[in-house]
Nucleic acid binder design. Structure first.
Length: 684
DNA sequence: GAACCCTCTTTTTAGACAGCATGTC
DNA sequence: CTAAAAAGAGGGTTC
């Protein structure tokens, strides 16, 4: 049962703020939102887990909890996983609440103007990235003390192999805040017995129903297949007219399986390909279409094909505002025909423009990659998904269908609130029996699986040191911290104790941690060494810290060449997870090593240790490192991005990502240099 | 000799977070 | 549960 937002005035929300919400079109609270306010004590003290399907208004629940707390004079932080999301929330909050006197602040890796405000506690609502929040808490433990409520968005991120551990650590850290930091966790539907619920003290607000139903359909692009499938499900065939395909769908809200006819464009219409014809058909009939394609190239190409067939689409041929001076002519052409593409290689400006044009309806078909699966608010009437696979470049045999969770995120974009739509559609197109079987099995899952947190599956080391940095400086306190982790729930205590003991032992042997000579009742107390502090604050792996420190020692204060420093960081364990175009052919790989040898001499390479032992036989990792270092060096020396792409195969997106990662490692290296040798060293 | 077509082989393939230095009688 | 499409290379045919 929905209700007017006026009920919020009973909970201390002043008129001005309700007006601001109304001005944004928020006049009603949806059922789960009402429940949050009336039954879940949204402005109370206890942790609360909000587990709802997309489009149920989770975000507003978090927002109300934060704003409500801020109005009571407590500080609220919002933690989100993406910079674009943080920016969007910050702008929204500023627009709605700044004029009411709330101090809204933003801090991400690239935006640090409000950092000193945050450190001084000069804020009411702060929007942060998970990792940033963790770092602030680590660097200055008093930061946590000032926080009343922490709204942590997209908690399913704990499953992510690369970034999950930090999020998991953040959750455990907030739980141990003194005085208590109230945690509001937001995520999609989870299993009824998920350990996360226990972690939040059993206080969960959950619902299965979406305000706008979602039809999760599998389109059968083959007559014979459609016939047998309809028979199998005992569903009546929709009335047959020309140019339709049959979709067998499951209704999210009712769970029923039914069939519907979907319009596809005429084959004469100038658009080929199953997905494209369906996209055109749906957009003509029905409104906006979001088309998820596996690669950037396919997304761009699909958009161009659609734009070329635009007369058939019935577009108006008008460029959206602000698109006149776009540098990307291809995108400009598409936009003028009511079509667009969107992926990581698009400039931030193009992306923002395309997103706005899609929201406003100026773009009716948006061809994109998985960038749009998560993040900014961008609903569509229909979502078409090509649930295909790619493998991480250079590694064969790493194939899979798109993960179910990702497809669920994509599908969740379907169905727009407030436009009188009865339902949204998320569609996969099956062209044969195999795909039909596969898609059903993978994506028509009934129950959400339990989350699989990843912290304890990986390297515990940096997190132990982070614990010490937080003041959990005895074995007992560390064990408590560990036992509070999500991924500890399934692990027996003795096993945890053993992991802890091993971790401490390793940290001590590497000189990251020292035991103080004054043990207290809780046993040994630990202290971080300067190197250990770098590891804790930057989340560096022990192995990398050791390599960096040894290498710094070897130079005894003589500043090495840039290329050599880049080779050091390119060889770090952390780069293994980065995605960039590695060489496949052994000869090509060897060429990079040869090039590095020519420029630096074998003596220097040998100083890199381990993987560079013998001339003429270096490991594959070292060969990769040679290419990566060379690319980074060329980039830092100002070689233009298009040329790098042509010469080395780096797309702008991967170059940017690799560059960011390298900067992070270089700074860690410089930090180690400063703390151990003491001489400042410039980085580029 | 250029243009075109066909076939077989090779290559390529999504996204994106994190820092702030120091030391005191 | 393990792909598919595009680009490139090579060869043959037509004009």
């Amino acid at each position: 049962m929905s209700a007017s937002i006026e009920i919020l005035s009973r909970f201390g929300f002043p008129k001005g703020i309700l007006e601001a919400l109304k001005a944004d079109g928020v006049t009603e609270l949806l059922e789960p939102q009402v429940e949050a306010v009336l039954r879940c004590n949204l402005l109370g003290e206890e942790d609360l887990l909000v587990s709802l399907p997309t489009s149920c208004g989770k975000t507003l629940i978090g927002e109300l909890a934060g704003v409500g707390a801020a109005l009571l004079g407590k500080r609220a932080v919002f933690s989100v996983p993406l910079k674009a999301l943080a920016r969007e929330k910050f702008e929204l909050f500023s627009r709605r609440y700044a004029k009411y006197g709330l101090r809204i602040r933003l801090a991400t890796g690239e935006y640090s103007e409000h950092l000193s405000d945050l450190e001084r506690g000069d804020y009411d609502i702060a929007v942060l990235i998970h990792e940033k929040l963790k770092h602030l808490a680590l660097r200055e433990p008093t930061f946590l003390r000032g926080i009343g409520v922490a709204v942590v968005d997209e908690l399913q991120g704990v499953e992510d192999q690369a970034r999950g551990p930090d999020l998991e650590f953040l959750l455990a850290l907030l739980k141990r805040g003194v005085p208590r930091v109230r945690r509001i966790g937001l995520l999609g539907v989870i299993a009824p017995d998920d350990p996360l619920i226990e972690d939040f003290g059993g206080r969960i607000l959950t619902a299965r129903r979406r305000p706008i139903d979602l039809r999760q359909g599998i389109v059968l692009a083959d007559g014979e297949l459609a016939r047998t499938a309809l028979e199998e499900y005992g569903v009546q065939r929709p009335p047959s007219v020309a140019n339709i395909w049959v979709s067998i769908y499951r209704s999210h809200n009712t769970g029923l399986v039914e069939a519907e006819a979907l319009p596809i464009s005429d084959p004469e219409g100038g658009v080929e390909g199953d997905l494209l014809r369906l996209a055109v058909g749906l957009s003509n009939e029905d409104g906006s279409v979001l088309l998820f394609l596996p690669t950037r190239r396919e997304a761009e190409q699909a958009a161009r094909l659609l734009a070329e067939a635009a007369p058939f689409l019935g577009s108006v041929g008008q460029l959206p505002e602000g698109a006149e001076d776009l540098e990307d002519e291809s995108l400009q052409f598409c936009l003028s025909e009511g079509v667009a593409f969107h992926h990581a290689d698009c400039s931030p400006r193009s992306r923002a423009l395309v997103e706005e044009a899609f929201r406003s309806g100026a773009v009716r078909i948006l061809c994109c990659t998985s960038t749009l699966a998560m993040g900014v608010n961008l609903p569509a009437r229909s979502v078409l998904i090509h649930p295909f696979v790619w493998n991480r470049s250079g590694q064969a045999g790493d194939l899979s269908l798109l993960p179910e969770a990702l497809v669920r995120n994509m599908a969740g974009r379907a169905g727009r609130l407030g436009l009188g739509e009865a339902h949204g559609r998320a569609l996969l197109v099956a062209r044969n029996q195999r795909e039909w079987d596969l898609y059903r099995r993978f994506y028509w899952t009934d129950l959400a699986p339990r989350l699989r947190p990843t912290l304890l599956a990986g390297d515990l080391g940096p997190h132990l040191l982070a614990g010490v940095a937080l003041g959990q400086d005895t074995s007992k306190k560390l064990l408590d911290l560990l036992a509070g982790l999500l991924s500890s729930k399934a692990i027996p205590l003795p096993h945890l104790e053993q992991r802890l003991a091993e971790g401490i032992e390793r940290a001590r042997s590497l000189g990251l941690l020292e035991a103080l000579p004054t043990p207290d009742a809780e046993g040994e107390r630990f202290e971080l060494s300067p190197l250990g502090r770098v590891v804790a604050l930057r989340g560096l792996s022990f192995e990398t810290a050791r390599t960096f420190a040894e290498w710094v020692q070897r130079f005894e204060g003589n500043v090495p060449s840039d290329l050599l420093a880049l080779l050091v960081i390119a060889g770090a364990e952390e780069t293994q997870e980065w995605s960039w175009p590695r060489e496949i052919q052994p000869e090509a790989r060897a060429r990079w090593v040869e090039q590095a040898r020519e420029r630096l001499g074998w003596e220097s390479l040998h100083s890199l240790g381990g993987r560079w032992t013998e001339e003429g036989s270096v490991s594959r990792r070292a060969e990769d490192a040679a290419k990566l270092a060379s690319a980074l060096h060329a980039w830092a020396s100002g070689e233009p991005v298009p040329r790098l792409r042509e010469r080395l195969g780096f797309s702008p997106g991967s170059l940017h990502a690799v560059g960011e990662g390298a900067r992070w490692l270089l700074e860690a290296l410089a930090d180690i240099w400063r703390r151990t040798v003491g001489q400042p060293r410039e980085t580029n």
